[in-house]
Structure formats: structure tokens, C-alpha cells
Amino acid sequence: MTQEPNFEPKILGFLCRWCSYAGADLAGTSRKKYPANIRIIKIPCSGRIDPLLIIRALRNGFDGVLVSGCHPGDCHYQTGNYRARRRIAITKKFLEYMGIEPERLQASWVSASEGGKFAEVVAEITADLKKLGPNRLFNDK
């Protein structure tokens, strides 16, 4: 892995509108500090996540992807996050087999009241990706 001292990873966050998105909001209104490396897309439920969205984000140059939804049992639609969990698990394992570092796909459960946890998650994955280095997977030779 090439160490790049000034590398700032770009992270795409898919956040459930009922919990993690509100959690991110809370992090902001509570003036919690977290790295500015994440760009957020609001999704209706973590169950909306298709593996295609994840791999497409990597294809388009993001260094990492975060999918964040409600804690198990708390899904606004009862079971969306359970389905997301199966899909994320499979995607993570399969992408790893293809040769994509597992750190590039991250997932978390963050509720609307966990502004602090959201800030921590973003800080952690930013640090992970800094260590890992930029995503050059889809670059041409």
C-alpha cells in the first residue's frame, strides 16, 4: 500500500433518512467534530442499498462507501435493515474475493440520537481509509 501523506479520502455515505441521517444532523447541531471527508446521500432506508450503488461509487472514484441505517429492531419499515444486513455482508465478502479491500465498504447502525456515534464512525473510517490509501482499482493501466 502506498502511503500518501496528504491523502484525504473521499467517502460516500448512504444514510437512512429515519435514523443515521438525523444522527448526522444531530452531530452537526451538537457541534461534534468529524472529518469533512464524507459526502452524504439520503436514502429512504438502508434496505434501499443495492450492491450496484456501492461498486458504482467505487468505480466513480470514491475511496470508501459507508452504509448506515437503524439499529436492528428499529427499522421504520420493520425489516429493511435486516435485509440490508444480509446484502451488505454478502457484498463485503464478495468484493473482498474480487480483490477490493474490505475497508472500502463500511456499515454502521446509527440512530437519530447518536450524533456522537456518527462522528466517531466517520472519524474511524476516515482513519482506516487514510491508512489504506487512495482507490485506484478502476483506473486504466
Partner: peptide, 16 residues
Amino acid sequence: PLMAAYESKEAEDLIR
């Protein structure tokens, strides 16, 4: 079907 089913506790180690 696999993607229609779930258990309340599974694959948690992959999620923060």
C-alpha cells in the same frame, strides 16, 4: 428466499 428472510442476530461482526 435468502434475501427475503432474516434472523434477528446475524452477520453483526461486519457492521459498526
